[in-house]
């Protein structure tokens, strides 16, 4: 789990990762030498380098990203959430249709022009076989999450948007709790909430599943259903399915 100056979601993301049986560690931007020994990488949310120049742009050129890019090209799993997703887009790893560090798409400033934090649902919009990084995820799986960002609007030239849709790079779209696609709260093109590369090993998702990954965090009726049951209230559920799929992928790869 990479920590840049300005990252702010590393602890809760690490908790989610550990809850699904993975071993994880925080690696600071000042410690690129520590990166090589990991099986998979997560770029958590926050404001790396204060979103200077553009969200994700400075971090994408940081020395620690050299190792991540190398790992992604070697087929290792790389997951970016929120600011991590912005970094992966700036690094050219998603949709991955152009040269490295020459972005073809961006998570640009929200249509509202400001940061907003709203509870959302996102739906898997590609065939599960397109996202080996989420092994065993159900077709059309609906995941609760928080969209808490100022720059989450997918923007790209029309031909690139067409390619993203046609070639299966559109990994997640915003939807309602029943799975019907809805307009993105940030004005995102294609109602896009997440992008995946051609190989399916690099995934960028804007909303945070780790912020609705325990029963006590649910705002819907599922929390009320276990009121009074301490153990269940503190148990992982909801957004945790996203990390469970990620863990299946990483563990399978590690064994193989």
């Amino acid at each position: 789990m990479l920590v840049f100056p300005g990252t702010n979601s590393e602890d809760e993301t690490l908790r989610a990762v550990r809850a699904v049986g993975l071993e994880g560690e925080l690696v600071h931007w000042s410690q690129p030498e520590k990166l090589a020994r990991f099986d998979a990488y997560i770029l958590p949310g926050g404001f790396a380098y204060e979103d200077r120049i553009r969200a994700g742009a400075v971090a994408a050129h940081d020395a620690v990203m050299d190792s991540v890019i190398e790992a992604a090209q070697a087929g290792k799993y790389v997951l970016g959430i929120c600011n991590g997703a912005q970094i992966l887009a700036e690094a050219g790893l998603v949709p991955g249709t152009g040269p490295l560090r020459r972005p073809t798409a961006a998570f640009a400033p929200n249509a509202s022009g400001r940061f907003q934090s709203v509870h959302v649902h996102v739906k898997l919009a590609v065939d599960p076989s397109r996202v080996p990084i989420l092994a065993g995820i159900e077709p059309g799986a609906v995941i609760p999450a928080w969209a808490s960002h100022g720059d989450g609007r997918l923007a790209a030239p029309d031909d690139e948007l067409a390619r993203i849709e046609r070639d299966g790079h559109l990994a997640f779209v915003y939807c309602d709790r029943d799975g019907t696609t809805v307009a993105a709260p940030n004005g995102s093109a294609l109602s896009c909430a997440g992008l995946v590369n051609a190989e399916g090993n690099v995934l960028a998702i804007m909303p945070h599943p780790e912020r609705d990954a325990w029963t006590f965090q649910h705002l819907d009726a599922t929390r009320d259903a276990v009121r009074g049951n301490t153990e269940e209230m503190l148990a992982p559920s909801g957004g945790i399915v996203f990390f469970e799929a990620f863990a299946r992928a990483v563990l399978a790869e590690a064994i193989a």
């Binding site: 553009r54 742009a57 020459r102 972005p103 961006a106 923007a155 030239p157």
Partner: peptide
Amino acid sequence: IETFLCNPAFQ
């Protein structure tokens, strides 16, 4: 400009 200052996807 090409490598850093401008992201042509939206700028």
